[in-house]
Amino acid sequence: MSGDVVVDPVAEFEAERGRLFGIAYRMLGSASEAEDAVQDAYLRWHGADREHIEAPGAWLAKVLTNLCLNRLTSARVRREEYVGPWLPEPVRTDAGALGPLETAEQRDAVSMAMLVMLERLSPPERAVVVLRDAFEYSHREIAEVLDWSEANTRQTYRRAKRHLADGRPRFEASAAVRTDLLTRFLAAAAEGSLDQLESLLAHDVTVWSDGGGKVSASTRPVSGRDKVARFLLGLVQRFGSDMVFGFVEVNGEIALLAWESGVLTTAATFAFGAEGIAELRMVRNPDKLKFLETQSRELSQNAGPSGS
């Protein structure tokens, strides 16, 4: 009788699922596509000769990364044809959906702003940055995932980081300042006070609104304090009287969710500058809100009657 321990392949995969989803989401910027990629990885795992797989975690990461690279190639074409600004699918992170976000660097790595910036990179560059920065893979490990030389991964990483360094520097406001600004922002919008709303916005504030051609949204970024304030008030005025708002953590940062008749219609994330709110990214495409809506319902049910 053999003393070998029999490992359940399903349990072995499930132990890696969270990490795999985190990699796929950061690679693709889409929760629904990330779930599909993880499922495809499971099918590969299910059909593999596991006796010859010495390190299941590394094997699965390699399979998943290459699945994501294939998906990114086709996604580029779809995004070029996308109606209006493209934003990532928002994900609630207050329950650990994307792994630990204990530092400012970890939160910034999954922010909507960073995921948009990652769109500047080629698919291989994006893979290298995600594995290196978000999951602390060594260059040797990344080289094994991509079947590259270690020198190539180092060069690709340096090039990708230079591209990302061209982005707008972020201003770190304290949690108390963010909460105060957003509470006043919501009150000013609800009251229809243009002056109060403008006072909370930076002069060069910009709002991106992703409706995907399916709901009301600007097809171009709106910039400038006056234009943004008027755009936001116009949007609020089109909301129904039964609209319910709430603040939750989305992509590592505070976000405003808007629900109408029990359906999630908007998820807005914010970036802050010394003058106030500097950037807003509003996801309104209903297809991109399905994952977040499901998450929010599940978290509310798990929290019980006193949960939000």
Rank of each mutant, 00 (worst) to 15 (best):
D94L: 04
M112D: 04
L197S: 02
G234A: 08
E136V: 07
M282I: 07
T65V: 12
L164A: 05
R17F: 13
P286E: 09
E275M: 13
F291L: 03
W59D: 13
V283T: 11
E144A: 07
V129I: 11
L289C: 12
S241E: 13
S216L: 15
A190G: 09
K288V: 03
L101C: 03
E260A: 00
E105C: 05
T93Y: 01
D147A: 06
A15Q: 13
R284S: 06
G307H: 12
S174F: 07
A189S: 10
L20T: 04
F291R: 06
P85W: 02
L20V: 12
F239N: 04
L299Y: 05
L64Q: 03
V38M: 14
R126G: 09
E136C: 02
L264V: 10
L194W: 00
S111Q: 12
S138F: 08
D195F: 06
P305F: 11
R140I: 12
G304S: 11
L72C: 01
P286D: 02
D108V: 08
T294L: 11
V91N: 00
F185D: 01
Y137M: 03
L28F: 14
T156F: 00
L101W: 04
S216V: 15
L118W: 05
L98M: 03
K227M: 10
A175K: 08
R281Q: 12
L64T: 04
K227L: 10
P9G: 01
F247G: 11
A258I: 10
G276D: 02
W45E: 06
L235H: 00
S218P: 15
R154I: 01
W208P: 01
G18L: 12
G212C: 06
R159I: 05
E81L: 14
E260I: 02
E14N: 00
E191H: 05
P124G: 09
L197T: 03
I254M: 10
L20F: 07
D8A: 14
S30L: 01
S149K: 14
K288D: 05
D108H: 06
W45Y: 14
L292Q: 04
D49I: 04
R79W: 14
P305M: 08
D36P: 03
W59I: 09
F291E: 06
A109E: 14
E253G: 09
T265A: 02
G273H: 00
W208T: 02
L69Q: 07
V77G: 04
G246L: 14
L64H: 03
A189T: 07
R44M: 08
Q196F: 11
I277N: 02
